[in-house]
């Protein structure tokens, strides 16, 4: 080491670099490496067998994986769109409230205060075909005589999961859009009314462009959330019935721990992350464009 004199900044940053390397970089490299091996938890020696892109190739031809992938994208599309519509509606109602707006805002955030696991349990109970509240209500109201197999039939189970997701996260959209509405100057709206706009046109041409960046922020956050959805599904259906509600990450979890095929699972995980990145980039670009459009200074 003669003559090696590290600079002061490097020395000062070294502890941070070491910690980061230990807890982030190393696991990342190990998991990336293991996605190129047939690593099984039950057979440690397989960690050292390099198989190149075999895991990735097998994913490409794995129908279960593509179903889970498609289902995740579908859930994302449905949940995000409905959450945005409902959140927008909620935010506009709360914004109109002249009294008790603080209380309403707090109430609105209640669903966010529960762990997704608990939300899963609660909705699992509500959608239970025998003792659930939903069937009980439907039957008491005379809408149906049958016990609807909410969590047993594939499509219904998917709908039930989507409802639980939407219930727990609409408030993210509502809060962010409400922030946008409150931050919005009132004069352009008045100008629009004088300029001949109906209430709908005022919303369409003036309010909405202004609130859009806030909706995109919520979209970005929620797209990451939904793309990694695991807990609610795990509790409500565990990917069932017969894999009909399997999402990307429940599939990754099952492959990694139930099937113990860690190498394959890691390959799936890296693939899934691409999906998250793609959505983030997409919404971030949208956000930047929307911000530039309203000349936002934040």
């Amino acid at each position: 080491m003669k003559g090696f004199k590290p600079s002061a900044p490097f020395l000062l940053l070294l502890p941070a670099i070491v910690v980061l390397a230990a807890v982030v970089v190393l696991p990342l490299i190990l998991s990336l490496y293991s996605s190129f091996t047939p690593f099984r938890l039950t057979r440690p020696e397989t960690f050292y067998v390099f198989v190149g892109f075999r895991n990735y190739l097998s994913i490409l031809s794995n129908a279960d994986f593509w179903w889970a992938f498609g289902r995740t994208v579908l859930l994302l599309t449905i949940a995000l769109n409905l959450e945005m519509l409902l959140g927008l509606g909620l935010a506009m109602l709360v914004e109109k409230a002249t009294r008790g707006q603080r209380i309403l805002r707090t109430l609105m955030m209640f669903p966010m205060m529960f762990s997704p696991i608990l939300v899963g349990f609660q909705f699992k109970f509500m959608f239970n075909d025998n003792i659930g509240l939903v069937n009980n209500a439907l039957q008491s109201l005379g809408i149906t005589q049958d016990a609807i197999p909410w969590l047993i039939e594939g499509h219904l189970a998917f709908i039930a999961i989507a409802i639980a997701e939407i219930w727990s996260s609409t408030s993210i959209f509502a809060i962010l859009i409400l922030a946008g509405l409150l931050a919005m100057p009132k004069e352009p709206i008045e100008a629009a009314r004088v300029d001949g706009c109906t209430p709908w046109q005022t919303f369409r041409y003036v309010t909405w462009p202004f609130v859009m960046p806030f909706a995109y922020i919520a979209m970005t956050i929620r797209s990451l959330d939904v793309a990694r959805a695991y807990d609610i599904v795990k509790i409500m259906t565990d990917g069932g019935p017969a894999g009909r509600t399997e999402l990307l990450w429940t599939l990754v979890g099952r492959t990694a721990y139930s099937d113990a095929r860690m190498g394959l699972a890691n390959a799936m995980a890296y693939f899934s992350i691409l999906l998250s990145i793609a959505f983030t980039v997409y919404f971030y670009n949208k956000l930047a464009a929307a911000r530039a459009q309203i000349g936002a200074e934040w």
């Binding site: 008045e190 041409y205 309203i294 000349g295």
Partner: peptide, 20 residues
């Protein structure tokens, strides 16, 4: 009548231009 039916136009103190 709502503002749009009065055939008026208004110039605001803060200009109230549509920023987008």
């Amino acid at each position: 009548l709502p503002p749009r039916s009065r055939n008026i136009s208004m110039v605001f103190q803060s200009y109230a231009l549509y920023p987008h």
